[in-house]
Write a protein that binds this DNA or RNA. Structure first.
Lengths: 241, 241
DNA sequence: GGCGTTCTTTGCGCTGGATCAAGCAACGGA
DNA sequence: TCCGTTGCTTGATCCAGCGCAAAGAACGCC
């Protein structure tokens, strides 16, 4: 067992899909994987392509986006280390429903379709883990769906930022930085609004010293107040009587 | 094997979750199930309750709805015969994320948590099937999410109706009837808009003889034209050059 | 058969956000 | 260092759809 191998196993230990496998098994899984490195802005796969592999992020951040026939684009999610993406082959889908792009330089492991099937067959635990993870993703998406259906833009943007803080927040002197390049346009596609509206909202927050932001960069200075906005019941609710 | 048992097995044969099991195995599955009958408007389970069982619709129609802390309610989906609902126990969730209500008189089978786990363990095929079904639901929801984020109300309502025709369409002399009680309010909660807007849209369509509707009743007279509205790229697109 | 309840329709005014349109700022490659 | 590109801001305008309000219409219960 080469130390290099050991290192890779350690990485997989944090991946919930493979939870419950022992070192030898993990080693086998790693052995079947293909390591992939991509630099910033490179594409990992495109929407509509045949889904041949599924991926786990080792390091860096990947954006999953979808584009509608009418040209409207949305960002489905950002995946960070330990997370799955392009998991279509896990459940027998045909083509990738979205495009995966490296937002930062990043590395990932991937497995092809037949290996995936073999793994799940040999280790049913993997299939069950996959079921759990998919269930969580479904729950997440349901939440965001409801959000989109019932809340107004400012709240949605606030929530998106709160979520991103959880996924990629990094303490800096000013506050908490979203630790990857994030433009106004990105936030708009993440929350179902327009670049302009996001810009206005962030400007307003900046005036209130709630955030500090720059080009593709957002720092939350007062996370708690952002959460307040995110959870505020709004004009439909019963705030400040 | 009593004929009654046979009959129930036949019902399960159409359920994709159990595809691949033989008669004896299906019989066992049916044996472990609890049959449940509910009349119109009765509740099967409520949002937030501990998820003890998962269900398969045998007959009738069930509405899955979610309510947000601010009181806004949305309808996640309608499940018809052969479809799963309340499938939280399949992937180890804790509480039901929504409320299930019988929209028509309906019957279902359900299994408790431990039985579910045992089934998946004994028949890995069931776990794989579950993975596939969950994957499809995820894909569906992603589609609807994008719809909500990028299309305007009229198109969303049209799409919702097209989908409902697929799920519960029944040919009648006038056209295709959505074969369960469906109010304007329901359509609004299904498409993320208000009762009033839906009413206006349906009234306009009625004027154009595209549909015929009444109290909790919708008949699509010209399905093709409805599809056209649903797919129209709209003012953002490049239609009719 | 009368009556309360539940759905639906429709008018009107308002507004959150989209759209359109400039112009400015920061970055990165040559 | 300069210049082209990409991202950000901000004003002005417009309108789809929401909220409110009030009046039918169809049901189902007693």
């Amino acid at each position: 067992m080469a130390p290099r191998q050991d290192e890779r196993i350690r990485l997989l230990e944090g991946v919930r899909l493979f939870q419950g496998l022992n070192a030898a098994e993990l080693s086998e899984v790693v052995g079947a994987a293909k390591r992939l490195e991509r630099k910033r802005n490179a594409t990992l796969f495109r929407q509509g392509q045949e889904a041949t592999r599924f991926f786990v992020v080792l390091d860096g951040r990947v954006r999953i986006s979808q584009i509608a026939p009418d040209g409207h684009q949305i960002i489905a999610r950002y995946a960070g280390s330990g997370e799955l993406f392009g998991c279509v082959p896990l459940f027998g889908g045909d083509a990738y429903p979205g495009t995966a792009t490296a937002v930062t330089h990043c590395t990932s492991l991937s497995w092809d379709r037949s290996t995936t099937a073999r793994l799940m067959e040999r280790y049913p635990r993997v299939a069950v883990n996959a079921l759990h993870l998919l269930g969580e993703e479904l729950a997440q998406l349901r939440g965001r769906y409801q959000e989109l259906a019932t809340q107004r833009v400012e709240q949605r943007v606030a929530r998106a930022l709160v979520r991103l803080v959880g996924q990629a927040g990094k303490r800096v002197e000013e506050g908490v930085l979203i630790d990857f390049p994030l433009s106004r346009q990105d936030l708009a596609e993440l929350t179902g609004t327009t670049l302009h509206t996001v810009s206005r909202i962030l400007s307003a927050w900046e005036d209130h010293e709630l955030i500090a932001s720059g080009r593709r960069r957002v720092v939350i200075r007062r996370p708690h107040d952002l959460v307040t906005i995110a959870e505020d019941l709004g004009p439909g609710g019963h705030t400040k009587t």
